[in-house]
Write a protein that binds this DNA or RNA. Structure first.
Lengths: 99, 99
DNA sequence: GGCCGTTATAGCATTGCTGCTATGACATGG
DNA sequence: CCATGTCATAGCAGCAATGCTATAACGGCC
């Protein structure tokens, strides 16, 4: 039933769910955050395993996250941000405001 | 010692956990996001029930969220943002950068 | 008093993210 | 070829957030 594996397919499906504009947004957000973390990590020359250790998680969790396999939770994002020495910003902004 | 209810106490406990700086951050983030949503909602003159309906959740979920009872997930934040006609911003920023 | 609208909480089922181990694929260097 | 390092993925246990109903507590208002 669940097709619990295959993150890419899972994400595709999530993005394709009818009338799930916000679910789509969440999936895209997950994807972009994954990419951002990968960039920050590679800029530091760290392996996934190193980042995982710093963030108190496992290499597989980092890989899953970077691939956008799941929509991350705020605690995880906080841990990653702390390890990468950046700050996590989560807030609501006016729709027209530039980033 | 379950005390599964009583969100305030739960949050206090989470923030007091030894060596859980990021968990603390997540709890504080939850609290601030809850306040932000409450402000946006009241500015529109909406009841929790109205916002809940727009965001496809129940009034109790909105109340729990506004009280900072749990650390919200990104899909929920996206739905609330969409209903309140604001955009959700989640990103990593340099530590010293001003908001 | 009763009635209604709103918010706060309780208690539970479901969902789905995380944590983990193990393993596969793929390079690179010996 | 073999060893090592890195990243990707499967599969599952555990658990926290969500989704839900029902209800209590606090108003106003008639």
């Amino acid at each position: 039933m669940g097709e619990r594996g295959d993150w890419a397919a899972m994400r595709e499906r999530r993005m394709a769910e009818p009338g799930a504009a916000e679910a789509y947004d969440a999936a895209r957000l997950a994807f972009e955050l994954g990419r951002a973390v990968r960039e920050l990590r590679e800029r530091r020359g760290w392996s996934q395993a190193q980042l995982a250790k710093e963030s108190r998680m496992t290499q597989s969790a980092v890989a899953r996250f970077e691939a956008g396999g799941t929509v991350p939770t705020l605690p995880v994002l906080e841990r990653l941000a702390a390890s990468l020495n950046v700050s996590l910003s989560v807030r609501f902004e006016p729709r027209d405001a530039a980033a």
